[in-house]
Write a protein that binds this DNA or RNA. Structure first.
Lengths: 145, 145
DNA sequence: TCTTGACCCTGTAGCGACTACAGGGTCCTA
DNA sequence: TAGGACCCTGTAGTCGCTACAGGGTCAAGA
């Protein structure tokens, strides 16, 4: 018999109990059988499915994307084009995030480099964090149309 | 006179009106004067302060960190060590994020590379997304102590 | 047998940082 | 005087969980 309690399933998949119940509530993980004492009793297919969910979540897919991937995985006869497209799109999003964070890192480093260790009033870090706004002011005033 | 309506302030700082009101509610941006018709009327210092907030938020600092930076910026006489530390810590967080996303990108690329363009049932992408769980099972069962 | 404590249950509220309404009021122009 | 662009308050929703509160169940030890 391979029945698992929610705690065992959680340890097996490195998932918090509350998260498992949450996945059930939003329909991502099917509701399992219940014991006489109303405890959830999970079978091997739940372990497999939750493992898939965790893995895809760890890879940064949204819940909706996971839902989509699960639906696709259930249709073994279809070509895997759609699956690939989902992964490609997610890869693109990931690359944009990396690019944005890399720019950010450069800015933070430049900001730090500018500091000579004086007082806050003369600190170039604080100045670097305050953007110039005067230039934009004219454009904006009276632009109600 | 440099009084701005909330809409003008929003355009000047690329900030949604709701966000400005939200910043006021959480005490990040001081409440401005009101006109006879109960409209918010912003002065130059609001523009400057909201600019600072937006810039630091864009750099990925949390609201609490922004609050801290604003408090420090108001104490011009203190050494700028604390400011630097905040930026250094944020830089470290950013670097960890970049590292995590870079690992992720590699995994997504490897997943995609494994696909030959067949049917979902044989698709290596779906398989790559399903982690092996059998090995972990023994450890977990009966580990109630 | 009783008690302890680890585990489980439901339901609701909170997190961060906004965003999106609903249902009104104000102001300016034609 | 009418229209529409703008503003007001207040509340609820977003995402993906996480943290209670207030109970019930179960197994092992005294």
């Amino acid at each position: 018999m391979d029945a698992l309690t929610i705690g065992q399933l959680g340890r097996a998949t490195d998932t918090k109990i509350e998260t498992i119940r949450y996945y059930e509530k939003i329909g991502l993980l099917p509701a399992p059988r219940r014991t006489a004492g109303n405890y959830r009793s999970y079978a091997a297919e739940h372990l497999q499915r939750l493992g898939f969910i965790r893995r895809t979540r760890d890879l940064g897919f949204t819940i909706e994307q996971v839902r989509e991937l699960l639906k696709l995985a259930a249709h073994g006869e279809k070509p895997c084009e759609e699956v690939d497209q989902l992964v490609v799109r997610h890869l693109e999003v990931t690359e944009r995030k990396i690019a944005a964070l890399t720019r950010l890192r450069r800015e933070l480093r430049e900001t730090l480099d500018s500091c000579q260790g004086g007082r806050i009033a003369e600190c170039r870090v604080i100045q670097a964090l305050s953007p110039p706004t005067a230039a934009r002011k004219k454009r904006v005033l009276g632009s109600r149309t």
